[in-house]
Amino acid sequence: MSKSMLSLTVNGRTRDDVVPDNMLLVDYLREVVGATGTKVGCDGGECGACTVIVDGKARHACLTLAVSCNGKAVETVESLERNGRMSALQRAFNEKLGAQCGFCTPGMIMASEALLRHTPNPNDDDIRRELAANICRCTGYVKIIESVHAAVAETSAKEAAE
């Protein structure tokens, strides 16, 4: 089995691991790093549950080789809390019921996070376009759209207050 040295940051922490060349990023995160927030919901790129952010962009961890992330910054849902406080997106998904069963949620929140970095003030169409690779089977997406809006509103209100 071929293995390589993988040096990267995961959720802000520098890591050096020797990993098999054929290991997927999602398996690296779940089994080597122990960050099980990232989920596997399909057999490859069809559901978005494994969405993480690599160097600022959304990416399917289930179609990405871990070794191809050498030198990169990987962020998962576990990275969003700051000093034990949930991010605005996390609070909004909780309060607006953007999460029901919660299985698609980590991927949905990371796709939303990527969206807000790209488009800080999205309208409904922006949200629909940018979350369109993430399948949710519980909500019908209505409350997911509301959650993203609520997060933006909370962030803007906070910024206005500051």
Partner: peptide
């Protein structure tokens, strides 16, 4: 909001595979 909501949105919720 759901009593188990915070676990779900932070990735701490433990599903069988976890």
């Amino acid at each position: 909001p759901l009593v188990d909501g915070p676990e779900k949105v932070t990735g701490r919720a433990m599903f069988a595979a976890d």
